[in-house]
Amino acid sequence: MGGPVILVDWGTTNFRAWLATGPGVPPEQIVSDGPGMASLAPGEFPEAFSRALDPWRSGSSPVPVYMAGMVGAATGWQAAPQLPLPVTLADLAGAVVPVDGFEEVWIVPGVRVPGEAPDVMRGEEVQIFGAFGLTGRRDAMLCLPGTHSKWARVEDDTLITFTTSMTGEVHAVMMAHSLLGREASGDSGPLGAAFDEGLAAGAGSGGLLHQLFAARSRRLFGDLGPDDVRPFLSGVLIASEIAAMATDYPPGDGEVLLVGSQTLRGPYERALEHFGYVYRWIDASDATLRGLFDILQCRSGGR
């Protein structure tokens, strides 16, 4: 790393940026709540980028920028490829895409599971390698909860497989567009008995679709109050996700690196304990920042 660099996480709902000035110096967050991809028309991406970062790039030698997330999707600013597995940190570093019309601005590629049953990832791959940089691990299972939750396996510093579940999106759709959601209160409150009951139901018999309808039945004739709907539904969906992952990512395979936000930390820690997993939590922002920094270091020969 020969000078300052800007590291950007540009996703669907947010734009965040940090200024890194050198090894051993904690990066400074310079943008915390910029516009996400979903709030911009395609032609507005360059202007939004410049408005956010020009104060740090207005000199004769613009500060380099490395970006990860949905900025590289087909619906983002400029498409970056999704590399087929297996993938290493060096593979990501070697395939960054320069942004047309901007000097020293790069987008990190995503990754994909090739074959007849493809799966895709964009942004989480940076968090995965960042989590390994933070922990010093070379092998691990990972759980990355979110709108589209990911479970992944890394062996010998190589991402070899991952699986996506639409856990967060299904929860949002159910709350916004289903009969169950209409009867829920706006505030889910702290985790409690309703979440635990949802975990038990989601891990039980009948399957996810039955348990979703059972939540409606319990609301009508059981003990599920308006304040209980959100946590119960969260428990059902998270339990269904983890139960489905247990074959390919079994609890007995060692510690799971749980990479997520503070908001999702509590529910997933409780659910992982319910299913017998040993876990270690890592803040998603810290993982993103470390992953981008390590990609930069790899490109500059520092790793």
Rank of each mutant, 00 (worst) to 15 (best):
M1T: 07
G3A: 08
I6S: 13
V8Y: 07
G11Q: 09
A17F: 02
W18P: 13
L19T: 08
L19H: 02
P26C: 02
G34A: 03
P35D: 04
M37V: 01
S39N: 02
L40P: 06
A41G: 09
P42T: 00
A48M: 07
A48L: 06
S50M: 11
S50Q: 14
S50L: 14
S50N: 10
R51M: 07
R51N: 03
D54H: 13
P55G: 00
P55N: 02
W56M: 06
S58L: 08
S58H: 10
P64Y: 04
Y66R: 08
G69C: 10
G69E: 08
G69L: 08
M70I: 05
M70C: 09
A73S: 15
A80P: 14
P81W: 02
Q82Y: 10
Q82S: 15
L89C: 06
D91S: 10
V96K: 01
V99P: 14
D100S: 15
D100Q: 15
E103Q: 14
P109C: 04
P109F: 00
P114G: 07
G115I: 05
E116Q: 11
A117M: 13
G123A: 06
Q127K: 04
I128V: 12
I128Y: 06
F129H: 03
G130M: 03
G130D: 03
L134T: 05
T135V: 07
G136T: 06
R137D: 15
R138L: 07
R138K: 12
L142I: 02
C143T: 08
P145K: 01
P145N: 02
R153Q: 15
E155R: 14
T164F: 03
S165Y: 13
T167F: 05
G168Q: 07
V170N: 04
H171S: 10
A176S: 15
A176W: 11
L180G: 03
R182P: 07
R182Q: 15
E183Y: 10
S185D: 15
G186D: 14
G186P: 11
G189D: 04
G189W: 01
D196Y: 00
E197R: 13
A200Q: 12
A200K: 04
A201T: 14
A203P: 05
G206Y: 07
G206E: 11
G206Q: 12
L208H: 03
H210M: 14
H210Y: 15
Q211K: 11
Q211P: 10
A215R: 08
L220V: 06
D227K: 09
D227S: 14
D228T: 07
R230E: 12
P231Q: 00
L237I: 05
L237R: 02
I242E: 04
A244T: 09
T247K: 13
G254H: 02
V259K: 00
S261G: 05
L264D: 13
P267D: 05
P267L: 03
E269C: 11
E269Y: 01
H274S: 12
F275A: 06
G276Y: 09
Y277C: 05
Y279I: 05
Y279E: 11
W281L: 04
W281K: 04
A287H: 11
T288Q: 12
T288R: 04
G291P: 07
L292Y: 01
R299Y: 00
